[in-house]
Design a protein around this nucleic acid. Structure first.
Lengths: 260, 260
DNA sequence: ACCGCAGTTCCATCATATGGAACCACCGTT
DNA sequence: AACGGTGGTTCCATATGATGGAACTGCGGT
């Protein structure tokens, strides 16, 4: 079963699935969760985890739950993760900022929220809030909806109502997400804060998955229903440009090789 | 062959080695480098990498070099890696700062340099430089020597001379590193900058490897040869306290489970 | 003390990883 | 333009090492 694409190693494929599950999970995960998530037999999961643990890719906390191993932590510490993404995206964000005059943000999903990791301030006086390090919810932000519309799991639990226009019904949200996926960009009008309108589009990682998003946000007086389609197009354009730039990341540096 | 400790999966063990090598490497790595590094046959490495790549743990840049995959990047983006470490270490650093009055730093190795990720400023007027985001070389910093003394690879190439007291001979450096490992702390006097003395000790990750270090640094008028042993003891004490705090990181959060 | 569940270990079976060699593609040379 | 070399992937027969059901262990709850 589980047809191998070509030249590969079943055991490693499976182990990779487990590791990715562990990394993608918010906190620690129990083995049994991994068993159900992967559909593999207990014994297999157990053995595979043992190997991953031996390799330092995974570790168990005091009560046996599995979490990211020290080797992964080391790696995460050794890079300023934003650096790559932000550095690559920055020029495109600025271009988008100039084109629209509005606040532009780049964000990534983290845990149950959306975190902004780069921002270009609005050229107007009204609208230049600093969103950095001020996470927003998934369900009522344009950025969040972009992630949701492209497969990011919707956090469980109630969807908090932040304004009287916030969508809090899951079915209604689903309908909206379908439109987002279809249209290519997400719009949120006064759902996060009255009078605040945002438009966002997906940035894709090298394997096609959506791991970041770009947004333009400003007051409803400027981002009117009439203006939105045009802005949406620009946002998509910028997001696609970043996606493209990412994919051709030759990772230029590091001229050092052999050498004495 | 290659005795498995107990219950494990050869293929995954090997794949883990490869992945760790990729993560630990500075930039992209060629398959052949991995072949020599791991001692595995070409064909095996090739197959293993194929699986890792399928899992998104690894990817290849435009000219086939292997680097960290999108799933790893996602993870790195989803955490502020320093957060954990810095948050846990902060109180201990502050305590050390109060005790010594000198500038205290926490650092991690990155690429060919040492990066400071947290700092407590000196209570004196002389000495309160901001080291954050100002990487220092491995060979002539106390922090760097801590890493070197505990297995971190010494960057290849010449060891730049920064002052007339900088150790630039590899053999001499080795001797010094042995002392560091032995004594438990590293000292550098005027090798990075004339008159600047630093003392550093290792912080261990949950698996015992040294992945961070703490330092106290100040002018030689205060950190005299006479004062150093006492400071060394305090630095070790703080570093050990952080190590301990790290190991008991139950990762408390995330009460959410099943639920509808 | 008892049940139940999470996780690890056993073990016989055979599916699956293995690795040497052939093969291919690409580059810098003569 | 033909060539040797290097870095990488694919093949394939072999037997090694992964597999998964069941038995086992250890805990935490009632």
């Amino acid at each position: 079963m589980a047809a191998a694409a070509s030249g590969g190693t079943q055991a490693v494929d499976r182990a990779a699935v487990l590791l990715v599950a562990v990394l993608a999970a918010d906190g620690p995960v129990s083995s049994s969760e991994l068993v159900t998530a992967s559909g593999l037999p207990k014994s297999t999961v157990s053995r595979l985890l043992a190997s991953l643990e031996r390799g330092g890719l995974v570790q168990r906390d005091h009560d046996g739950e599995v979490l990211h191993g020290p080797r992964i932590t080391d790696y995460a510490l050794s890079v300023r993760p934003e650096d790559t993404l932000v550095r690559i995206a920055q020029p495109h964000l600025e271009r988008l900022g100039e084109a629209t005059g509005e606040t532009v943000n780049l964000a990534v999903p983290i845990g149950g929220e959306v975190r902004q990791i780069a921002q270009v301030d609005s050229t107007y006086l009204l609208g230049a809030v600093n969103w950095l390090d001020r996470p927003v919810p998934f369900h009522c932000s344009a950025l969040g909806r972009v992630f949701l519309a492209h497969g990011h799991p919707l956090p469980t639990g109630r969807l908090p109502r932040l304004t009287d226009r916030t969508v809090t019904s899951r079915t209604q949200l689903q309908r909206e997400l379908a439109r987002v996926a279809d249209r290519g960009y997400a719009v949120v009008d006064s759902e996060l804060e009255p009078g605040l309108v945002a438009v966002a589009a997906p940035v894709r990682s090298t394997d096609g998955s959506v791991t970041a998003a770009v947004s333009v946000s400003g007051p409803s007086v400027r981002l009117t229903p009439h203006a939105i389609p045009g802005v949406g197009a620009r946002v998509i354009e910028a997001a696609d440009a970043i996606t493209l730039a990412l994919s051709s990341t030759g990772r230029s540096r590091s001229p050092r090789k052999g050498a004495a």
